[in-house]
Design a binder for these strands. Sequence first.
DNA 1: TCCATTTAGTTATCATGGTAACGTAAATCG
DNA 2: CGATTTACGTTACCATGATAACTAAATGGA
Lengths: 151, 151
Amino acid sequence: MVDAYATAHGADPARISGALVMMRRASLLIRNLESYFADHGLSQLRFLVLIVIDREPRHQSLSPVEIAQRIDVSKPVMTRTLHSLQRDGLIATTADTSDRRSKQVAMTAAGQQKLQACLPGYFRILSDEMSGQGVACPTTPDGFLSPSAAR
Amino acid sequence: MVDAYATAHGADPARISGALVMMRRASLLIRNLESYFADHGLSQLRFLVLIVIDREPRHQSLSPVEIAQRIDVSKPVMTRTLHSLQRDGLIATTADTSDRRSKQVAMTAAGQQKLQACLPGYFRILSDEMSGQGVACPTTPDGFLSPSAAR
DNA sequence: TCCATTTAGTTATCATGGTAACGTAAATCG
DNA sequence: CGATTTACGTTACCATGATAACTAAATGGA
């Protein structure tokens, strides 16, 4: 089916299929990860925030913009996420003494614990995916990618 | 950095990196496609709905559930999307004579036109991606996947 | 120094995904 | 048949991504 459309538009069906398969595979993996994190009261974004703070070698704390830039997410999303993480007691924020516009974000003990608890399963899922033991990867009837799977 | 975490958890860094790179690549491709569709007043989901109807060999129309199942999307999302496509004049719905719970969805001339207009660029983007000429694929500083990029 | 520009964080709003629950219609089974 | 179960479309609500626009603070040049 992809073939029909692709050749009709002068595209190489193999390339098109390759791209679609990759998207499908990645999407299912992301779905899988998101489901795993949900079971632990996290999400991909919340997990990444904790990781980024955790591996900060210097002072163990970062400003919201710094985190947003490293994870490549917009500032409003970071604001919302940090508030929710704070509400759940996984991070704590303090005022920045040198810049009154800014804050410093640090992990709490509960945050550290949560992160450590999630890491093994996270690597397991990624590892299984690459060993071909990940989620089965049935393409859509048409071979096209489902947008829902893109999440 | 991935190495440090991965080896600390007994995972194969190469596998982990591989999974992260794939997710990153797919995410950027999806971003790219979404941006392309936005320029044409569509989205991935709206585009797929049109494709699924277009390639229906039998009667040129489908019920909302059939479309939802083929694209692997929830019913409420399909309801919303079909309403928006109808509002934009790209599809038309008629009552199903044999099942009063259901409807039949068909493309309008404008819908056909929009679909045909989008196909070449769509295949171009997919093809470029697989030929290595797609979007540059810089991993995050840490090698982890940005959730925003996952969209 | 003072005014303009940039930057940090926030708010408001939109888009797009999901689940739960509901009304109505069809189907199934006793 | 009639009662229960299943299925279709919808509504309501939540999560998570984005942009635009605002406030307050820092910065920089005339």
